[in-house]
């Protein structure tokens, strides 16, 4: 596990900014976001919490370029979003590994030059050293999400978007995944937006937590706790979680 915290020489670190200004998004008659503003600094770890239907997933789909806004501007690294951007990677709720491709082939799904070696390195980063030749079906749920994380990070994205990727995992595996993500994020410094239902998860990982309610930011709070954060709630974290929960 310790190897993954080391940054190899020559690795690009750093992230891109995300900016939404006056963004609206509606699906038919229902408007999910209206006049929505959000700025995420380069390298910032933002957690978005809120009830289902509050616009969290819409926010992520707009930032990834999967969906276009009905109005307003979405910018990545200062440039307006026009479709899918290779500098932005998305981790889904489910691992979405291709069952008929080996673990390494899944990580190197885009088949860029030197993908095999890059995939093996990325797998080592997520603690799955030497498992590249196996079929995804032999992996546990947590291991599958690790492979998905390796697949997202192999191309060195400037922005990582996470759509509740740990929601289906058991509590212990979830804590392992938190440590892993925290370590890789600190080593690489990409901008991260994490969608989650789990307020404790948000406080454990993020620099800043926003609460989305009915398409508006109901709370925007900085998490000024030193890293790595202890799993057992520190009183300040517990206080913060209470504040966030009250706003949800």
């Amino acid at each position: 596990m310790s190897a993954l915290l080391e940054t190899r020489e020559g690795e690009v670190t750093g992230g891109l900014s995300v900016s939404l200004s006056g963004v609206s998004k509606s699906f038919g008659e229902t408007s999910v976001l209206r006049g929505f503003d959000l700025k995420v600094r380069p390298g910032e770890f933002l957690a978005v919490v809120g009830r289902s239907g509050g616009g969290k997933s819409t926010l992520l789909r707009l930032a990834s370029g999967l969906d276009r806004p009905s109005g307003g501007r979405v910018e990545i690294g200062g440039r307006p979003v026009a479709g899918l951007n290779p500098a932005v990677r998305l981790l889904f709720q489910e691992a979405r590994l291709v069952p008929w491709q080996s673990v390494a082939q899944n990580v190197g799904i885009a088949r860029g030059p030197g993908w095999r070696a890059a995939a093996e390195r990325a797998l080592a980063d997520v603690g799955l050293d030497g498992r590249g030749g196996e079929w995804p079906s032999v992996l546990s749920g947590g291991q599958k999400q690790r492979v998905a994380l390796a697949r997202a990070l192999v191309s060195r994205p400037g922005i990582l978007l996470l759509d509740e990727p740990f929601g289906a995992l058991d509590a212990l595996t979830r804590i392992e995944m938190h440590r892993l993500l925290d370590g890789i994020w600190r080593a690489r410094g990409f901008t991260t937006i994490l969608i989650t239902h789990d307020v404790a998860e948000a406080v454990a990982l993020a620099d800043r937590v926003i609460v989305l309610r009915e398409g508006r930011i109901a709370l925007d709070v900085e998490v000024e706790l030193e890293r790595p954060r202890a799993e057992l709630a520190d009183p300040r974290a517990a206080e913060l979680q209470k504040r966030i929960l009250a706003a949800v």
Binding site: S64, L66, L84, I109
Partner: peptide
């Protein structure tokens, strides 16, 4: 979901056909 993933990860239509759709239909 796999097809959407392949799109997000930059596979073009041909790569999606050969790596996702055909093996999935096999």
């Amino acid at each position: 979901q796999l097809v959407e993933m392949a799109e997000v990860y930059g596979l073009d239509a041909r790569a999606r056909l050969w790596r996702i759709v055909l093996p999935g239909a096999l």
